[in-house]
Design a protein around this nucleic acid. Sequence first.
DNA 1: GACTGTAGGTACAGGACTGTAGCTACATGA
DNA 2: TCATGTAGCTACAGTCCTGTACCTACAGTC
Lengths: 193, 193
Amino acid sequence: MSAEERREQLLDVLADIITSEGYAAISIDRVARDANIARTVIYSHFANLEGFVAALVERTEREALRQIRGVLPDIVDDDPDVILTEAIRAFLTIVRDDPRLWRLAVLPVDGAPADLRDRIRRAKQAVLALLQPIVTWGLEQRGGPQIDPELFARLIITTAEDTARLVLAEPETYTPERFADFVATLMASVARG
Amino acid sequence: MSAEERREQLLDVLADIITSEGYAAISIDRVARDANIARTVIYSHFANLEGFVAALVERTEREALRQIRGVLPDIVDDDPDVILTEAIRAFLTIVRDDPRLWRLAVLPVDGAPADLRDRIRRAKQAVLALLQPIVTWGLEQRGGPQIDPELFARLIITTAEDTARLVLAEPETYTPERFADFVATLMASVARG
DNA sequence: GACTGTAGGTACAGGACTGTAGCTACATGA
DNA sequence: TCATGTAGCTACAGTCCTGTACCTACAGTC
């Protein structure tokens, strides 16, 4: 097996352990056992467990961002409700189609080491900063009683994450379509100024 | 120190480690070190780490439920929007006033061992089952386009949890009042049939 | 066919944690 | 004052994990 193939395979095995048993379960030893190789092979690719996990996080961040960027151009509309609905639909479709990646991106937070938690926190902060102006614009367009835009943006992110977990856990019951319909109905029933 | 005092103290120390460093950081050894006692003291109170954690989870569940039950009688109204708003306010106030307990109840999920994750999942399922009929009633009363009651109930729970985390992380910025206002404004702007 | 780079393995020393056996110290009641 | 129960300790054997030193096997190149 080539170095690059091995590296990717090791990251896959690590990701599988984390998503199925949490961060508490990981160790160089465990990954080596699951991959049926000697531990030294892992050490020849990564400095230690910390570097190993960091590499996985980087790969996950990079690939997740790539997938998100891929669908962003499709989501353009004059109506903020349509933008929101289509964004949810696109996001959940991505999640459903690459469960291995998104299980990792969306599930693990709390058991993770402190520096990783910080990193995830910062990533979410970045998404929030991206979403905030769009939400503010949407709420202003709507008029009527002024809704706290920060909390509304947070509500959207939290809901997106939670629905992603549902789609991953029970894709038959919780489909991107169902959530898109839900959001569309919900937004339609909110009064316009 | 009496057996009961020691037991409670050990559970406190365990809770502090989990909330500050996650489930990955816990061990009998670590708790003993933090509590400045020999490991054997812990073994005389709990069978092993699993039983130790189980005891903490039970204490947390019991106390959390007790606090929730304590404020439930105050939340009675004819208007579903008022019920929702006051429930959020009451919940976040409880959370703010007992951060040690609620940090544990609301934060840790993913790093935890599989059986504990199952337990938390079931607890949330129970809360969902409790909330569902109320939400369904509220949505029916409202009339207009029919909103998926299950997803709406989930949205409420997820948001409550997330806001609880915010209140715990930055109580100055994210107050129960701010969230209650947000919910009130949001519900007020949803069209009535 | 010898040379070299690299994938992969074995072996070892050391550390962290577990669970148990067995000890000490002290308080309380007969 | 002695007996007894219990809080708390030290010590030890065993497991799992880490990181490194050093070996083997093989593929490609001269």
